[in-house]
Simulated assay, not measured.
Amino acid sequence: MNKGITLATGKYFKVIDGDDWVDTDSLIKFVEKLKNMNSDLVLTNHTEVYPNHTMKVCLVHDLVDGKTYTWNDKFDIKRVALHTLTIKTRLLQQNKVHITENCFYVDVEYVIWSIYLAHTITYLDIYLYMYRLGNNNQSVSKMNMLKNVNMQEKVSYQLVKLYDQFNQKSNMSINQDDTIFNTFKRSIGSTMRTYLLLDTQSARLHIINFDKNISNISRMSFNKLNEDKFIKFLRLDNYFMIPFIRALYKFWLLKYAYLDK
């Protein structure tokens, strides 16, 4: 990704993961619209592609198709993902954005940098990105996430540092901060859920150590993460609820076939 940012010459920059693709007809429409746009950040919809079905996903509400907004406007973005964003190339290059290398799960770094650097946003009601899921060989499969949990930790700590850094500069609007936080907390929660795949004692020890490291990096971020219901529940009574939460999570994974029965 870093080499792509350095070498890019186009007005806009978009990342397509190696497992995924874009819908051809939607891409043609998207490029034509980009030619007449000047927003810093362009958001689109995506389609989740499973082995036996597809599901269209829209993560924004209250944004009019094609209208340009700023972070001071009123709208609801649940979160921003790699699949949904396109960013002006010069913003990445001028701010010397550098993403952690030789590591999975770094897309969230790129996402929160893009949100932070953008001043204007346009939503296009186009289902552009085809996001492949349900393949056990993917880095986002549960077993591979457990195998690569050290990478999740590494990225999570970097996200904590970035969120703390952005807040210290005190130039974010409430809407921008909320959008970054909604994206950031999901990644932290994902790392904690990966630990729940371990045995109960190991899960508890890893989550406590992980949370302690977050606190050491940024007490502000640590406290802010209590706004996430899942993380707050994990922390209750000195992490006493972890065995119960782990059992519920394993049941949910088995029910929806995310783990081998």
Rank of each mutant, 00 (worst) to 15 (best):
E32Y: 03
E32L: 03
L34H: 10
L34C: 12
K35E: 06
N36V: 04
N36A: 14
M37N: 11
M37S: 14
N38S: 15
S39T: 08
L41T: 07
L41N: 03
L41F: 13
V42P: 00
V42F: 04
V42I: 15
L43R: 10
T44L: 04
N45Q: 03
N45I: 07
H46F: 15
H46D: 13
T47I: 15
E48T: 01
Y50H: 01
Y50S: 05
Y50E: 06
P51H: 08
P51S: 06
N52T: 09
N52G: 10
N52D: 13
H53P: 00
M55C: 02
K56V: 00
K56A: 04
V57S: 02
V60E: 10
H61F: 10
D62T: 05
D62P: 00
D62L: 10
L63M: 15
D65Q: 10
T68L: 05
T70W: 05
T70F: 03
T70K: 04
W71G: 07
N72T: 09
K74T: 11
K74R: 03
F75Y: 12
I77N: 04
V80P: 00
A81G: 09
L82E: 12
L82M: 14
H83I: 00
T84A: 14
T84N: 15
L85C: 09
L85E: 07
T86M: 09
T86G: 05
I87K: 01
I87N: 03
T89I: 11
R90S: 12
R90D: 09
L91N: 04
L92R: 13
Q94Y: 12
Q94K: 15
N95M: 13
K96I: 02
V97D: 04
V97T: 07
H98W: 03
I99A: 08
T100K: 12
E101D: 07
E101G: 09
N102P: 02
N102Q: 13
N102K: 15
C103Q: 08
C103A: 12
C103P: 09
C103R: 07
F104Y: 15
F104K: 13
Y105T: 05
Y105D: 02
V106N: 15
V106H: 07
V108L: 12
E109L: 06
